[in-house]
C-alpha cells in the first residue's frame, strides 16, 4: 500500500506556547522539559492512515519569535492546514491569536484548514484561559478546537487526525468535482464541435 497523498501542515503561535513540544509528541511520542527555542523553521514527517489509505503529513514547525517572521511568513502559502497554538496558562499568547489569524488570512491559500489549539491543559492550577473562552475563539475563527497537553499526551493525535481527515476529504471532494467538471467540459466541447461542424456544412 503506497502513500497516496501528501499533506503540508504548518504550526504557528506565540513563542513558548509549545508548538515544538506538540510536534515532538506527535512524531516521537516523547516529551522534554527543557525549552529549546526554534530557530527559523523545523521540518518533520509522519504517515497516517485514513480510510485504509496512507497519507503523508509534512509538518513545518515555525519559530514564534517576532524576529523570525520574515522567514516563517514564507511557509504559509504552501500549507493546506494550519494549527494556531496558544498556551492556556499565558493570556498574552491567547490575546495574540487575532494577529496570527490575520496573518493566515493574508498569507495562506483561501481554502486552508485552520485548527485552534490550547496547549498545556495539564497545568490546571496555572490556567488563565478557560476551555469555554477557547471554544468561543474557535467559533469566532470558524474552526475546530482542541485543548492539548504534550506532557500528558492529551488531544494531540486527535488534532492531527482531524486536520488530516478534513484536508483529505476536502481535496478528494474537490478532485471529484474537478473530474465531473472535466467530463462536462468534454461534453460541451464535443457538442460545440458537432454544432460547428454541422453549421459549417
Amino acid at each position: 500500500m503506497g502513500v497516496i497523498q501528501q499533506i503540508k501542515l504548518l504550526i504557528i503561535g506565540e513563542s513558548g506556547a509549545g508548538k515544538s513540544s506538540i510536534l515532538l509528541r506527535f512524531i516521537d511520542d516523547s516529551f522534554s522539559h527543557s525549552f529549546i527555542t526554534t530557530i527559523g523553521i523545523d521540518f518533520k514527517i509522519k504517515t497516517v492512515e485514513i480510510d485504509g489509505k496512507l497519507i503523508k503529513l509534512q509538518i513545518w514547525d515555525t519559530a514564534g519569535q517576532e524576529r523570525f517572521r520574515n522567514i516563517t511568513n514564507a511557509y504559509y502559502r504552501g500549507a493546506m492546514g494550519i494549527f494556531i497554538v496558544y498556551d492556556v496558562t499565558d493570556r498574552k499568547s491567547f490575546e495574540s491569536l487575532n494577529e496570527w489569524k490575520r496573518n493566515v488570512e493574508k498569507l495562506s491559500t483561501k481554502d486552508v484548514t485552520v485548527i485552534l489549539i490550547g496547549n498545556k491543559c495539564d497545568m490546571e492550577s496555572d490556567r488563565k484561559i478557560s476551555i469555554e473562552e477557547g471554544r468561543a475563539k474557535a467559533n469566532e475563527f470558524n474552526c475546530n478546537f482542541f485543548e492539548t497537553s504534550s506532557k500528558n499526551n492529551i488531544g494531540i493525535e486527535e488534532a492531527f487526525l482531524t486536520m488530516a481527515k478534513d484536508i483529505y476529504y476536502r481535496t478528494k471532494a474537490s478532485e471529484e468535482d474537478a473530474i465531473q467538471l472535466k467530463k462536462e467540459n468534454v461534453i460541451t466541447l464535443s457538442n460545440e464541435k458537432s454544432t460547428k461542424t454541422s453549421g459549417c456544412c
Binding site: I39, G40, I41, F43, I71, A74
Partner: peptide, 15 residues
Amino acid sequence: FIQFAFRWMNCLLMR
C-alpha cells in the same frame, strides 16, 4: 538554503 542554513548562521552551527 534558507531552510537549513538560516540556523547555521543564526546559531553559528551550535545546534
